[in-house]
Amino acid sequence: MSAPTATRPRALRPADPDRGLPPNALGKEKGHLEQLTLYVFVVVPFLALAAVVPAVWGWGLSWLDVGLLVAFYFVPLLGVTVGYHRYFTHGSFKATRPLRIALAVVGCMAIQGPVVQWVADHRRHHAFSDRDGDPHSPWRYGDDTRALLKGMFHAHLGWLFDRRQTNAERYAPDLLKDGALRVTSRLFIVWAFLSLALPAAIGGLVTGSWAGAWTAFFWAGLVRTALLHHVTWSINSICHVVGSRPFASRDRATNFWPLAILSGGESWHNLHHADPTCARHGVLRGQIDISARVIWVFEKLGWAHSVKWPDPVRLAAKRQQPAAA
């Protein structure tokens, strides 16, 4: 007799996309300034990414630009994967107070939103994953090709422009109780500015020129932000449609290996949805998970403790079994 597999989630209804949500799941509408800021941080880096080839022909790409791009890509990425996601959202480990605040600040520098709102959105996603109420399911409009393409755009990018926000008081009350964390979250625009300004400042100081500041700003600021955004958004879109599903979960989360390094291990998404609090997402042989290694380092340094590492018994119980002949 084969082990039960995940129930196939039904398509969400476009006429009532928030059907099934509790009455207080949605908070206030986004203000005009917040919407304008969102458009700037999403559209401008995307245009910069589209201008990469002309930029290479016009100004070139120095090793300093490459180094800054890599550093300002992976440090904020880990702020999101280790901090926003595995620590703040799912409690995969406990952290010292300085590490807690540092993870919030560095996560904000990924320019994906304030930590409190990000956590609220993601907890709501897990509560309704690929069902009515999920803020960014690619199966929102149905299973046919046209509906799925529309749903993947919504999951990848479109959901960010919904006017109503997830109610943080319902989905992230623990974070709202932390005064320092609330202040850090409210200062998101400051951390976002620094995320773009620091590469330019370093490039200008090292080269002693405005040209060095500009190329560093372009590559390690704008292009880096666009790349990081699209890799993160791909976890919402691609990793719920394309890939393998070795573990049973109640949704369609998949593993998509091509994004493993660029996503810091987040694209081992199937295991994450099968066991959300697990600190390691890449649990099978050959699955690189940079974020889990960083958590391991924090644990060794004494900055993190009570880490929820994979349990072989739990993993075995969640493995998908082939259907009986």
Score class of each variant (00 low, 15 high):
Met1His: 13
Met1Pro: 15
Ser2Ala: 15
Ser2Tyr: 05
Ser2Arg: 14
Ser2Ile: 02
Ala3Pro: 07
Ala3Lys: 12
Ala6Tyr: 02
Ala6Phe: 01
Thr7Pro: 01
Pro9Trp: 07
Pro9Gln: 05
Ala11Trp: 08
Ala11Asn: 03
Arg13Lys: 04
Arg13Gly: 11
Arg13Phe: 10
Arg13Trp: 03
Arg13Asn: 14
Pro14Gln: 10
Ala15Trp: 11
Ala15Gln: 03
Pro17Cys: 04
Arg19Asn: 07
Leu21Asp: 07
Pro22Met: 08
Pro23Lys: 02
Pro23His: 12
Asn24Asp: 15
Ala25Met: 02
Leu26Lys: 12
Lys28Trp: 08
Lys28Thr: 12
Glu29Asn: 10
Glu29Pro: 09
Lys30Ala: 08
Lys30Thr: 05
Gly31Tyr: 04
Gly31Ala: 02
His32Phe: 13
Leu33Ile: 12
Glu34Asn: 11
Gln35Cys: 02
Gln35Glu: 11
Gln35Tyr: 01
Thr37Phe: 09
Leu38Ser: 06
Leu38Gln: 03
Tyr39Gln: 07
Tyr39Asn: 04
Tyr39Met: 13
Val40Tyr: 10
Phe41His: 09
Phe41Pro: 00
Val42Phe: 14
Val42Gln: 09
Val43Trp: 02
Val43Phe: 05
Val43Pro: 00
Val44Thr: 10
Pro45Thr: 09
Pro45Leu: 13
Pro45Ser: 09
Phe46Cys: 11
Phe46Ile: 06
Leu47Asn: 00
Leu47Cys: 08
Ala48Trp: 04
Ala48Tyr: 00
Leu49Glu: 03
Leu49Met: 15
Leu49Arg: 02
Ala50Val: 12
Ala51Gly: 10
Ala51Cys: 13
